[in-house]
Amino acid sequence: MLDNTSKVETPEGIELPLEVAGVVPRALAYIIDLLIFVILNYTIALTMGLLGNFGEGLYLILFFILFWLYPVIFEVFRNGQTPGKKALGIKVVHQDGTPISLNASFVRNILLSADFLPFFYTTGFISMMLHKDFKRLGDMAAGTLVIYTEKENKEDPIPKVKPKAPTFALSLEEQRSVLSLAERHQQLSKARQDELSNLLPEKLFPANTDNHNRLKQLHAFANWLRGN
């Protein structure tokens, strides 16, 4: 099964899937960061220009700091997210899923200049498109991944029906699907929902459940599974 995740196995043998982010969101995030950088740089240049030669020197120092440390500072102190990454909902972590350290962030951002070659990130693009986990050279050297931040798992409302224990044994995945059918009751068309619930064989439902009431039965199971 092809999926867009990178799997990390913990010492306890639990597999954690990390949803890896690819070229498109990363490029968009970079463009946002680049715009912010340009605006900051321009503001500094304007201000320092007023101060003559001294300002020019100071500007060069500030430019150096801004250029090399802008992503590092944000990544290390703001949960692996530069403003651009935050806007796109992605963040940098170590490839084992732990928060990024100063070392790793430094390495991957220094090597941004290697990905830049020979012209405006050609190497980086090719590397990201060909690598299984969409890594550019900097990510490979630093051992980092760019992943999607998990959204807060808020419960979708399900139709309130009197809870009822399922009349047949359900595996974890099947339980999830029954619950998910109820959660998506507003997104899916009524016909499709009936169709889905009619996929299940008759004997799984209490006797004399007609086709239309099956969905209701499943909603009752969902309410029971959620513990309402």
């Binding site: 099964m1 867009n4 690819g22 498109v24 969409f134």
Partner: peptide, 20 residues
Amino acid sequence: IKLRPRNGYAAIDLGTRMAQ
């Protein structure tokens, strides 16, 4: 492919893997 609801960008990323 693994079927599950993805966000728009994640779906594109899955496409990249299909292309690979």
